[in-house]
């Protein structure tokens, strides 16, 4: 026994020595990563249990912040509801759009494919170009959409798309979807290109008769790793919607019609300096993002098994 332990210890020392270079390569990145990503999560969870006001912590308040969020903060409930609506619509639809367009683009000849890829991907990298939507859907009759509808006689007076709660959610979802063909889209394009072509030939021999059948029986199963990664990208961004909406409708939005958890967090953290409470909001958002991601990963890993 003692002998094997000794060997184990020695070999572990040798392992660490052998690994020395590995640690050195990884260390600079990891120090920054832990400082700006891992450590803050811990701090945030700790703050959420206190009444930290950005200067000092006076009391440890346990779960009071969370209880207040759920029982005493009507605006938070609105924010939670809006966030879930945004996430459950823009997440899956954005994901499916990425998948469908990536597949469709790959069916096209390479030269045209590059151009179409650019058309779909350009909005997500164009900085604040989404603000153009405020000109297109501008609330007076100079707005492009309003002027067309007025001319066709469909409406009598211009619609204030970004200030009328009746339309705000819909129009914001539209803009967010417009922005959603981002990283996942490219991931899927690469995934489709990477599929072994001989699989399709074999399938054709085995009786697969249309490109739709190919999609279901061959493409989807071979794309599983990319689909899982794409899901992470789509889910994370769909829960984090906030700044785009502020750009479109301002902050706070009319009757909190598109107020999300992200906005609530900025409100309490950036304007009211109730850091303990804001940390509780951040922790809820963190849990929602991580939880739904892990859930979807688990579901996707079952596909085709």
């Amino acid at each position: 026994m003692a002998v094997t332990e000794k060997i184990g210890f020695k070999s572990r020392l040798a392992m660490i020595k052998k690994d020395q270079v590995g640690y050195l390569f990884a260390l600079p990145y990891l120090i920054l990563f832990f400082t700006f990503t891992v450590l803050p999560i811990g701090i945030s969870i700790f703050f959420s249990l206190t009444d930290f006001n950005s200067i000092s912590i006076r009391n440890f308040v346990g779960f009071d912040n969370y209880i207040r969020l759920i029982l005493n903060d009507d605006i938070f409930i609105i924010a939670l509801k809006n966030t879930l609506i945004f996430a459950s619509i823009t997440g899956p639809i954005g994901y499916l759009l990425c998948f469908f367009f990536a597949w469709a683009v790959n069916e096209i000849r390479p030269k045209l494919r590059a151009f179409l890829t650019l058309c779909f991907y350009a909005p997500s990298i164009s900085g604040n170009a989404y603000l153009i939507w405020t000109l297109l859907f501008n609330g007076d009759s100079y707005g492009y959409v309003n002027s067309i509808l007025l001319k066709m006689g469909l409406i009598n007076s211009p619609i204030r798309y970004f200030h009328d709660p009746k339309y705000m959610m819909t129009i914001c979802i539209l803009v967010v979807l417009w922005l959603s063909l981002g990283t996942s889209f490219l991931v899927f394009i690469a995934g489709f290109q990477g599929i072994d072509k001989t699989l399709y030939e074999a399938a054709a021999v085995d009786g697969v008769r249309s490109r739709w059948q190919e999609l279901w029986y061959i493409t989807v199963p071979s794309m599983k790793p990319q689909m899982m990664f794409g899901a992470v990208m789509s889910i994370t961004s769909s829960f984090g919607i906030g700044d785009v909406l502020t750009g479109l409708v301002g902050f706070p939005s009319t009757q909190y019609a598109v107020h999300t958890i992200q906005h609530h967090l900025q409100d309490y953290g950036g304007a009211r300096f109730e850091m303990g409470y804001a940390s509780a909001i951040a922790t809820v958002l963190f849990a929602l993002m991580l939880g739904s991601n892990l859930l979807v990963q688990k579901m996707l890993s079952k596909v085709g098994e």
């Binding site: 400082t35 999560i41 701090i43 984090g240 951040a282 991601n293 892990l294």
Partner: peptide, 18 residues
């Protein structure tokens, strides 16, 4: 991989302090 599953906005407050 887990850190890809949440956006950096949830760490704004602690990051400001850091």
């Amino acid at each position: 991989v887990y850190s890809l599953m949440f956006s950096s906005s949830v760490t704004t407050i602690p990051n400001f302090l850091i």
